[in-house]
Design a binder for these strands. Structure first.
Lengths: 202, 202, 202, 202
DNA sequence: GATGAATGAGACTTCATTCAT
DNA sequence: GATGAATGAAGTCTCATTCAT
C-alpha cells in the first residue's frame, strides 16, 4: 500500500481523471482529450506515461482508492473511542457521498470496483490488498468496541465483520439516495446505524 | 407496473441485451451489432423499435428490473412465515448473484441503476415506481415479522426499513464477493443475516 | 410527346414525387418511404412499377415536364395575338414560380434538368424531344409577332430564339428572386420583358 | 467579401470539394471519403475543420463563389471599354461552362445556389453579400456603356439591370447547351448577345 | 397484386493513438 | 520531453430494396 511511486505527471493525470469522475462523468464516457484538458497537458503526454486510456483510468481509480483508504484509516485511528471511530467513518462516507463516484465507498465493497470499470478485472491489477485494508479498518473499529465492552465476543469475527460491513454499506446507500428518502436527517441516520450495530453485536 | 406493452420483437431485443449483460458485458461496451446478433435480427431492425442504442439498453434494463421485482414479490408473497419470506429473498439474491448484472440487486438500491447506465438519468425514465415497489417488498416481509411477534413495534418504520435494507444489501455484496471470503458457506451467511435482522429489530 | 401510357398507380407515384418536390424537397433528399406515404401506397408497390427509386423520380420529372409543356403550349395557342401569347407565357411562369421546383421552368432550359437530378443523364432518357417542343413554343409565339409585324424578319431565326429565350429565362429568375428585389411589381416586370423583346426584335 | 480567413487545410478541403463538383459530382452525391481522398487527407481531418459534411460543402461553395466573383470583377475592371468589359464577362462564362457546376454562373443567379444545395438555406449563411456583388458587376459594366453613350439613360436602372442580366443568363444557358444547338459558333453567340443588349438599352 | 417488416450495405462521425515537430 | 494535428478503425444509424404474407 502506498509503495508504488508515481511521477508528478502521472499524479496530475490521476487527479484529472478522478475530478472528471467526481463531476459525474462515467469512466466509460471519459475521453482522452477530456483527461488531457483537465490535466492541462497534451494528449500525447498521457501515452508517455500509460499504455492506453484504460490503463490510465484503471490506475487512477486504484490510486484514488488507495489514497482514500489510507486517509480514512488515519482519520479513524486518530479517534479514541469505538463510538467516535464509528461516527468518524460514517461522517466521511457522508462527506464523500456528493462525489458522483466515491472511491471511498469502494473501500467497503471493493468487489464492486470492477462493476464500475471492467478493465480493473485484468489480472495485472491485484485488488486483494485493498480488500485486506478495508477489513483492517472494520476490525480496528470493532476492536475498540470489544475493548470498551460495547461489543461482546460471543459472535465470531466473520459474523461481526459481515454485519458491520452490511450496516455501513446500507448507510452509504441510504445517504446517496437522500433525495428519495427526505424525511430522515443525516444525524438521525448516523445514530440509527450506530444503534443497530451496537444492538446486533452487544 | 407491468402496464407497458411491448411487442414480441422489442422483448426479443430486451432479452438479448439482458443476456449480454448477464454474460458480463458492460452496458457501455455493448455494440448494436452484438444486440442484433444476440437477438437473431438485423441491425436495422433495432431502429424500427427504438430511437437509439441507448434507448434500447435503458428500456431493457427497466424492463428487466420490473420483471424481476414482480417475480420476486410473487415468490415472497407465496411464502407463509416471516422467516420463510426472508429466506426466500436471500435465496433469490444468491441465485441471481451469478449474473454479472443482477437487476434484482437493483431492487434494493434503485438509485444505483443510473450509476450502471447514465442514460437512465434522462427524465423520460421514471424510476420512482421501482423504488416504491422495492420498499413495498421490505414492508411486506417486515409486516409478517411484526404479526408473528418476531419484530417489535418499538422502533420506527423507517428505522426498520433502513436497517433491514442495509443488512440485505450487505448480504448481497457478501455473496457476490464469495471468492474473496471463501470461509463461510451460503447457508451460514443466510442464517447470519436473518439472525442479525431478528436481533436488531426484536 | 404524350405517347407513353402510364398506369394509374404509376401516375399516383409521379404525382406524389412532384408534390414532394413542389413542397421543397430536393430530389436527392426524397426517400422511398416519403413517396409511398404521399402516394398512399406501400413501399413495395413502387418496385412493382419501377426498377429503382432513381428511375421513379427520373420518370416523374419527365412526366411532369411533358405535361407542363403540353399544357403550356395549349394555353398559349389559345391566345390570339403575339402580345397575348407572350403575356400568357410569362403569367404561367409567374404562377409556377411558387413551386420550389417548377418543371415548367425547365421548359426553357431543358439542359438544366440534369443539373436537378443527375440520373436523368442516363442515355435511356431522351431529352431532345422536350428541347424540340420548347423551341416550338418560342417559334409559335414569334411567328405571331412576325405576322403582326411587331417582329421584323431582319434577324435570323436562331438569333430571335436565343434572345427571346434569354429574356424569358431572365424574367423567370427575376420572379423567383422576388424577395431579393421587392421594388418592382409582377405586372411591371412582365411589361418590361415584353417591351425588351419587342425592342430587340423589331 | 474575402474577409474570412481560412486555414491551409480548409482551403485544401474546399478545393477538393470544388474539384469533385467540377468533375460532375452532385453535391448531394459527394461522400466524405471522396473529399478526403481528393484532398489527400484522412476522413477524420475534415471533422477537425468542419462540424459536418454539409457544412464543409456549403462553405466550399460559398468560398468558390466569393473567389470567382472577385476574380471576375477584377478581370472586368481591367478592361477599358463597355464592349470589352461585356465581352470579357461573356468569355469568362464560356470558359467556365465546361465546369459542371460553375459557381461563376451563380454570380448571375445567386438565388439559385440554394437550389444547388439546400443546406445553404441555413440562416447561418448570408448570401445577400453575393447578390450585392453580382449586381455591382452588372452596374459597373452598364456604367461604362452609359459613359460611352452606348446605353441611354432613358430607361430606369432596374430595367437596365434586369434586361442585361436576362440576356447574360440566356447566353450562359445557350453556351452550356452547345451540343443541343451546334449551328452557331461561340463568337457569333457573344456578338448576338452584345448586339441585343445594345439594341435594347440604346 | 399489394404490403410493410426486416435487412444489411454503406454512409457519417468519433476518438484512441501516433508521430513529426 | 511534450505536443496536438492527423489518422483510420470502428461504431452508430439510415434507408433502398426484398420477400413472406
Amino acid at each position: 500500500m502506498g509503495d508504488k511511486v508515481y511521477s508528478e505527471k502521472q499524479i496530475a493525470i490521476f487527479n484529472a481523471i478522478i475530478e472528471l469522475m467526481k463531476n459525474g462523468i462515467n469512466p466509460y464516457s471519459i475521453k482522452v482529450s477530456d483527461i488531457a484538458e483537465a490535466a492541462g497537458i497534451g494528449k500525447g503526454t498521457i501515452y508517455d506515461y500509460f499504455n492506453s486510456k484504460e490503463e490510465a483510468i484503471s490506475e487512477a481509480i486504484l490510486y484514488s482508492v488507495a489514497k482514500e483508504i489510507e486517509y480514512g484509516y488515519s482519520r479513524i485511528k486518530s479517534q479514541d473511542s469505538f463510538k467516535e471511530k464509528f461516527y468518524e467513518l460514517l461522517y466521511m462516507i457522508a462527506e464523500k457521498s456528493a462525489d458522483n463516484v466515491s472511491t471511498f465507498n469502494m473501500l467497503l465493497s471493493i468487489g464492486e470496483i470492477s462493476k464500475l470499470y471492467e478493465f480493473l478485472l485484468d489480472e495485472k491489477y491485484d485488488l486483494s490488498e485493498y480488500v485486506y485494508m478495508a477489513n483492517q479498518i472494520i476490525k480496528h473499529i470493532l476492536k475498540a468496541g470489544i475493548e470498551e465492552g460495547i461489543i461482546s465476543t460471543t459472535e465470531s469475527i466473520p459474523y461481526q465483520i459481515i454485519v458491520t460491513n452490511s450496516l455501513i454499506m446500507g448507510f452509504s446507500q441510504y445517504i446517496r439516495q437522500k433525495d428519495l428518502y427526505p424525511h430522515v436527517s443525516l444525524e438521525e441516520t448516523i445514530e440509527m446505524c450506530y444503534k443497530a450495530v451496537v444492538k446486533v453485536l452487544n
